[in-house]
Write a protein that binds this DNA or RNA. Structure first.
Lengths: 187, 187, 187, 187
DNA sequence: GATGAATGAGTATTCATTCAT
DNA sequence: TATGAATGAATACTCATTCAT
């Protein structure tokens, strides 16, 4: 395959549809969903899935990369919109809110540091950088405690997502996450 | 199995040994470990595993119930030893510390509320009650914020475990968990 | 599995039946026959084949080893029955005659020297030794040319089998093989 | 494909290139090489391979026919150059020597008589005729035993190739083949 | 009760072949 | 015509579950 040539329109469409199916399947049912099942739900043959993603791991990674890419872009936007650290908490809450609907985000964050390909590592780094920038501004503004770093914040976000997932209160969405995030405030 | 008749001594011993093997296997390698493998490690045939646990799910639940039972007992001890809410944070930190070594604890807590059998639900309730008692005392003593309930605390503990698992600092074990737990302190 | 304990009677029977099916399938259709097909023909599930032969290569080797073992035993008998080199040509002709019916024998000889397990190598060596003994006696008796060794003879036998396979004359079975074997006579 | 119309120049060129790739691939790696792989190595799409060779078997046959055609041409040259049967053994030795480098020749000879198309059968016949001519002259000259026919000789050649392949002595290439060919000499 | 052999549906992956672009 | 994407049957192998010994 000549990777410099753009993919044929129908192929690209199929690739997107498979990715979409996989994203949902992995998010709601976990990574154990079989490729045959994903093919079936997408409405293509198993061979088509394999053409686009030579091994299951490749599909998992593609889903992950897609997610990380989106997050990194959101983070960069937040940096551009930021005024004196004001974007920090809203960004985190947005992240958590999104994760409530799409469970795979937590997986993306959780696995971001491990066993991944070059592309994925680069995207994770992009995200980390924007994260760090937002954090630094909030710390300068004195709203966030000084003894945490970007990785800590990422861990806390993951923690908040986890908490939210297991203590979802339909009446007050995001409440428990907000409680957890409180730990980042200056004392 | 006729549950009214006590099990033969050797049968009970086998059941315990299988449970022990499964606990360790699930904790270190995840639920994907095969029953044949658990049988092999225990030194029994696969048929024996099936006799005690008719389906894999039954074994998973038994491991979970075992874990929850242990936690509930620990919690009750903490209640008995408590002096003016003093046992609250040490108990949580103990929980988190233990979870660092044994991954299945997080799963136990996370799944405690869902899809489980009568026995498991009862044990989860026992745990919840002791938890609530510890929390109430700490809130009366004024060390824990008043706007959280026992379920919130459980979610925060799960959050702290998650954070700790993804931000493990060998030099300062428990640091990020402590940061997260800070959110429970009165403001 | 405790390999010191004899296999259960029914298991041994199944193992033999699978081996038998595989022998015939490999001999008549080549190694490309699928394990599922062999299972089907034997009347067992694919899992049963896998229990006895963990990978396809293991089954191929088992078939091969079986064959080599039989050949080695035949060769040793020929050595015991030999009188002044008299057993040499009859043994070779017997080999070739058998190979006419069972094609896998040629494969067994051909692959005997390569890529094989300890067991297989040992059996191949046993065969070679008996072969060499028969050859030495025939050479001493002056019926076989002195400038060939046991490996040469094996190659010539393989050659004769090949020739026989492609020049099978139903009226005079073994004729072309006999012609080829003539090259071993003293000039 | 309309065989009455000459192929377009570029199409013919593609056909040749695919054939060339297949020849090398089959010779060095066996028939298991996939058509996609052959397409890739040739630098065309899999559809193009299929256009020229509707099924894999057709490609295999084409390679075979190509080989047989070449052999027949060599044989005819040998006949033209022959002086009183002098070309017989050199031709056979040349064949065997070539087969040492290119494994597919043995396959070509071995399969020449079976399951093949009209074209292939005709080429095989051409080869057989030239073979027979060489043999007749050598028999007239009294160097080759009278009780073998052209098909016998072909079988012996195949046998010698097989022997050579399994008893290759790097120090004396062709030795075992020469030993086998000895069986054709008059006694 | 225990054993471990057998079952068979299920998994990831490959590849000859078809067909839309 | 050429391309390469899609198809889907097939392959080797796994494993929860059943059942004869």
């Amino acid at each position: 395959m000549d990777s410099r040539r753009p993919m044929r329109a129908d192929a690209r469409r199929n690739r997107e549809r498979i990715l979409q199916t996989a994203r949902e399947a992995f998010a709601t049912e976990g990574l154990a969903v079989s490729l045959d099942e994903i093919a079936r739900r997408t409405g293509v043959g198993p061979g088509t899935v394999h053409r686009h993603f030579p091994a299951k791991e490749a599909l998992v990674e593609a889903v992950l990369a897609d997610r990380l890419g989106g997050l990194a872009e959101q983070a960069r936007q937040a940096v551009r919109a930021d005024q004196g650290g004001s974007a920090f908490f809203p960004f985190l809450l947005g992240l958590i809110g999104e994760a409530r609907a799409k469970q795979d985000l937590a997986d993306a964050l959780a696995r971001a540091e491990v066993d991944l390909s070059e592309l994925t590592r680069r995207l994770a780094l992009d995200l980390r950088r924007a994260f760090a920038e937002l954090l630094a501004r909030a710390q300068e503004a004195g709203t966030v405690r000084a003894d945490v770093d970007a990785e800590d914040v990422q861990a806390v976000v993951l923690a908040a997502i986890t908490a939210e997932r297991h203590r979802a209160d339909p009446e007050r969405p995001g409440r428990i996450a907000a409680v957890v995030l409180d730990c980042l405030l200056v004392a």
